[in-house]
Every structure is written in C-alpha cells, then in structure tokens.
Simulated assay, not measured.
Amino acid sequence: MIVNSRGARLLVCALLVGSVAGCGLPRSGPNKREIFSGSVEQSGNTFIVPVDQRITKLTNVTPKLGFTNGFMSASLVGSDVIHSGDILSLTIWENVDNGLLASAGTNATLLNEVQVDGSGSIFVPYAGRIKAAGNTPEGLRQVITEKLSAQTPDPQVTVARVAGDGATVSVMGGVGGQGVYPITQPTRTLSAMLAKAGGVAIEPEIAQITVKRGGHSGKVWLKELYSNPKMDIALRPGDVILVEKDQRTFTALGATGTQTRVPFETQELSAVEAIAQVGGLSTNFADPTGVFILRDEDQGIARQVLNRPDLSGSQRVAYIISLTEADGLFNARDFMIRDGDTVYVTEAPYVQWQKTLSVLTGTASSADAISNAAGN
C-alpha cells in the first residue's frame, strides 16, 4: 500500500494526539473537576464546601492559649520565705563573757553559709536541727532564740537569707540568656523573670511562653502576657519556663509561587495572607476559581458547616474559594487557616490545552521528517 506525504503526516499527527491523550501531561496536581469527582455527592469521601460569610464565621477557630485558674490564683512568693537550698547567715550574741559559741574575748558568733538541706532543716550548735523552710528569717530568728535561751542567758540572734538560692526557676528557649534564675523580690512574676533572662529573642507575634509546674503546664502568647495582667502569673520554685516559636504550619501546593510547608507568621492567618506568604497565585497557571483549603474538620464544626448532626468524628472537607469576585476576595480575607491545613490552587483549564498544543506543535517537524522519509 502506498501512502502519500499528506496522508503520512495526518497519520503521524493522529498517533501523537492519541498518545498525548492516553498518557497525560505533566501538571502540579488534580484539576477542579477531578477534585469534585471525589466528593461525597459523587460517592467519594470528601465534602466540598463553598466558602461564604456563614462558613467563615463557623470555621473561625483560633487556638486560645492561657493559664488555668491553678496558675493564675497562685499568690506571689514571699520575698523572705526560706526554701530548701537557701544559704543563711546567722549571727548569735551572748550576754556573758564565756558563751557557748563565742570565742574568748568576744560575745558574737557568726555562722556563715548555713545551707537549708533537702528536708528544709538547718543545724545550729546547742539548738539542734531546726525546720527553716517555709519560715521567714524573722520567724526562724525567734525559733533559734527560744532554743538557745535554755542554754545561755538572753541570746540575741539575727538571720539573713541569701535571696533565692533555693527558690529558683529554669528559663530555656528563645531568650537572651538561658539558665537557672533565683526568685527574688523583683522577679516573682513571669514577665519580670523573662526580663531578667535577657528578654524574648523571638518575634513577639509568634512567641509562645510555656510554664511547667509539677505535672501541669500552661501556655500563653507573649503579646497576651503583656496585654492581660492576669496572665502575668506568680512563679513557684522549680518552675520551668520555655520560650519558643509558634509551631503551627500549613502546606502550599499547586499553582502558587512556591510549594512547601510554611510556618505561621502571625497568630491569625487568613487564606489571602497564606497565599500571599507563598508568593501569591501563579500568573501563568493558576485558576482563581479553584482555591481549595483541605482540612480534617473537627466533628462539632463539621456538623454545623454541613448541617449534618449525624456525622461522627472528624471529616475530610475541601473548602473552595473563588477569587474572581469581590465577595470571594472578602471571604478569603475572613477565612482563617489552621494548623495542618493544605492550601491547594488548581491550574486553569487552558493550561492543559496549552501544554497539549505545545507538544503537538513541537512534534510537527517530526511528522514532516517521518513523511519525507516515507516518500523517499
């Protein structure tokens, strides 16, 4: 059978079109039609929800941080309360020439660097072991005086505390100077202790402060700590203060300026801000009517959003926003992104046609070469 040059070209082009249609072209992900085909309405397992004012209000859930009443109700540690680990300085005067403790020719005895042991006690010669922790220097003075009165006439005692040696907290993370700091009168609150540690070295907008106390912990935004006096809690010995960046992230995929996992830069992040944070929509590829926010929605919110009180457990929801209308832009501005969200922007339909035409145009010369070879 003889095939002319024109017929050969048509045959080759037909084969190429079929090949392109069969194997598909490179792209960044599913198009809008394919996402809709996976919806619950199409026997899939994802709910497709167009974003409007009602949806933005129902889904606007920003993580609330703060301390429990147990933290906030704690009173300030007394500036002169003695704790285990404190170092005390005792001076004892005796009203006799040859006292129990004083050296010859003196009537005063200095007991320097007396450490309060783990059980909260100290040892004073002729007075024995005395409970010091939980007492004030004045209260301890009276106890020692009473103990020694039976041994020497009219003893006079002074007690000085080295402030905070036993009442300490640990400060870690993004501060000017990590370390173990004493609780002293100027540093009895969280904000004062952070200042003592050199201040917070993280952007205030995303800085979080965690306080661990025993088996409990609480967390607060740095900005709220300074704006809400109730969050400036009183510290307790053994507290651990951790300063760290907000750990929330979202993932950007599809026809955006970049495709990556992105940390939050603000406490609240809208869909518009999230898109801007990754360089905006790709001018040459993005479909502005196909901006999706993919999320495993909590049961309570899913029931309200979908008006389905029968739903149980978290639900896969694909929120869709169209940026081609003013209302859509406002909705994108008001729709809040959450930790773990995926922001996916579909490609415009013409992009696949453009890629197909590019492939076919690029192979036209190949078709001519084949037909010429057939004619020779």
Rank of each mutant, 00 (worst) to 15 (best):
R6P: 01
G18I: 12
G18P: 00
S19R: 05
S19C: 10
G24R: 06
L25C: 02
K32Q: 13
S37F: 05
G38C: 06
S39D: 07
V40S: 04
I48V: 15
T56N: 09
K57V: 13
L58E: 14
G66L: 06
F71M: 11
A74G: 10
L76W: 00
G78Q: 03
S84F: 05
D86P: 02
I87V: 14
L100T: 15
L101R: 03
A104I: 10
G105A: 07
N107L: 03
Q115I: 15
K131A: 15
T136M: 12
K147Q: 15
A163D: 14
V169G: 04
V175E: 02
Q178G: 04
V180D: 09
M193S: 12
L194G: 00
A195V: 12
E203T: 13
G215F: 07
H216F: 08
H216K: 13
E224Y: 04
L225W: 00
S227C: 13
S227R: 12
L242D: 11
K245M: 05
Q247D: 14
R248Q: 04
L253Q: 13
G254Y: 00
T256E: 09
G257H: 04
T258V: 14
Q267K: 05
S282Y: 03
S282F: 01
F285N: 11
P288E: 13
F292Q: 09
F292I: 13
I293D: 00
A302V: 10
G313D: 04
S314P: 03
R316K: 15
I321L: 12
D327N: 12
G328D: 11
L329E: 12
A332F: 02
Y344C: 03
A348K: 09
P349L: 08
Y350A: 13
K355I: 04
S358F: 04
T363K: 03
A364D: 06
S371M: 07
N372V: 07
G375V: 08
